[in-house]
Amino acid sequence: MTTRDLYQRDREWHPPALAPDYKSSVARAPRLALLSLQSSASELTGPTFGHGDIDPIDNDLIRNYAKSGDPIGERIILHGRVLDESGRPVPNTLVEIWQANAGGRYRHKKDTYLAPIDPNFGGCGRTLTDENGYYTFRTVKPGAYPWRNWVNNWRPAHIHVSVFGTAFAQRLITQLYFEGDPLIAKCPIVKTIPDQRAIDQLVAALDLNATVPFDSIAYKFDIVLRGHRSTFFENRPEGN
């Protein structure tokens, strides 16, 4: 396992902790400065997962919870690569997703939105990237849903994505959106991100090359994790 340092995280690219238009952040944002910490083994190692941890059906959200038939909704293939900032693929890393059903309702005991639960849709999936960093899921496109922030806020259709990488300091959770959705530009959670280019990077592209004719439309979503520094000149007695 590599224990090379990581590129510094660009905190101006990520959302700040405090983003008042996203009201839930106000009481949950640390107010003091983060302590900058040069990484050690504690941050540069991380858990690993193997095919014994998951089942092959786990990445098929159309089938992994189905009881009496297929879930309702627009069938989609979601695929892409996990790369690092140097463009290198991140193989054998765990990717987990969760989402609302086609009506915008989550299968969660705390979700009370009036759209119906789909008896054939659980709403979560997981997979390992292959040796080239590729991952694939099959699912249905989630619906937009209302949420309590301003009086009338609607989340754009989105899928939550969790990725590991090889170092605990690469750990990342984000959300992917869908090309062409007019709600993206209006969403206070999307707008916690200050840079429009960073937002664009969260929008999955319609990918006709990956569609399954007469079956599923497709979206491509690449995920980038922090890159590793080179090990040139690593013999300096005090490190670098």
Binding site: D111, H160, I173
Partner: peptide, 16 residues
């Protein structure tokens, strides 16, 4: 490449 920007895990993180 730029690191993918983070977004909140939201209230339903347990589902995933």
């Amino acid at each position: 490449l730029k690191e993918t920007a983070s977004q909140t895990a939201g209230p339903y993180v347990h589902i995933g």
